[in-house]
Simulated assay, not measured.
Amino acid sequence: MSPLACSLLALAALFAVSNAKNVHIPNPFCDERMRGIEGDSSEHFKMTVSGGVVNIPDNCTRLGRKLVGEDVSVCNAPYSKPLLRSVFGLSNKFGILGIDCPTNTNGCMTLELDVTQHCKMDVPLVRG
C-alpha cells in the first residue's frame, strides 16, 4: 500500500472514531463505581481524599428529596489505578466506600473523587 493510501486510511479511521456516539474509553489510571438508580435530578461535586474508607456527604437528602443512586470515580494519573471497593458490612450503603491506593505511591494522599449523586422527589402522599 502506498504511503498516501496508508495516510488516507489512518485519517478515515480517526474520523470514524471521532464521530462514534457514546464511545467510552476507560482511563487506565481511573476506577469508577455506579450504584442505585437514576433520579429526577442530580448533585455533582468533587472531593480531595486519600486511600482508605471515605465518607461522602449526602447532598441530595433534604425535605422532599432522597438519595437513590451515586456515580463515583477516582483517578491517580499518571501513577497508578486506585481501586474502589465496598466496605465490609456496608456494601449497599450510599456514601461509604473504600479506596485501595498504597500511601507510598505518588498521588495517593491527594486523590480527586468525582461524585454525582442521583436524587428523587420523595413527597409522601396525603390522603384526605
Rank of each mutant, 00 (worst) to 15 (best):
E43C: 08
C60K: 08
R33Q: 15
T103E: 03
S7G: 01
T61N: 13
V68S: 06
P102K: 08
V23Y: 00
M1A: 10
S42K: 12
D100S: 04
N55Q: 05
V126F: 09
C60F: 10
M121R: 13
S18Y: 00
K81A: 13
G89K: 07
H118Y: 09
H118I: 04
L11I: 13
P82G: 05
H24F: 00
A12Q: 13
Q117V: 15
V17F: 03
A12K: 12
L4H: 04
N76P: 14
L9Q: 11
R127V: 06
K93C: 01
R33D: 12
T61S: 13
G69R: 04
P3Y: 14
C30A: 14
S41G: 10
N27G: 12
K66G: 09
D40N: 11
D58M: 07
K21Y: 04
C108K: 01
V23P: 00
P102A: 09
L14K: 11
G51V: 03
F29L: 08
K81R: 15
N19K: 13
N76Q: 10
G107N: 00
T110M: 09
V23S: 10
A10W: 15
G107L: 01
V23T: 03
C101N: 10
G128P: 14
R35Y: 09
L84C: 11
V68N: 09
P28I: 02
L4R: 07
G39C: 11
D58N: 14
L4V: 09
L63F: 00
R33M: 14
K81G: 15
F45Y: 14
P102Y: 02
R127P: 06
K21W: 00
S86H: 14
G52Q: 12
T103F: 02
L9S: 06
R127T: 07
H118D: 13
L83E: 15
V54M: 01
T110W: 01
V68Y: 05
P82Q: 01
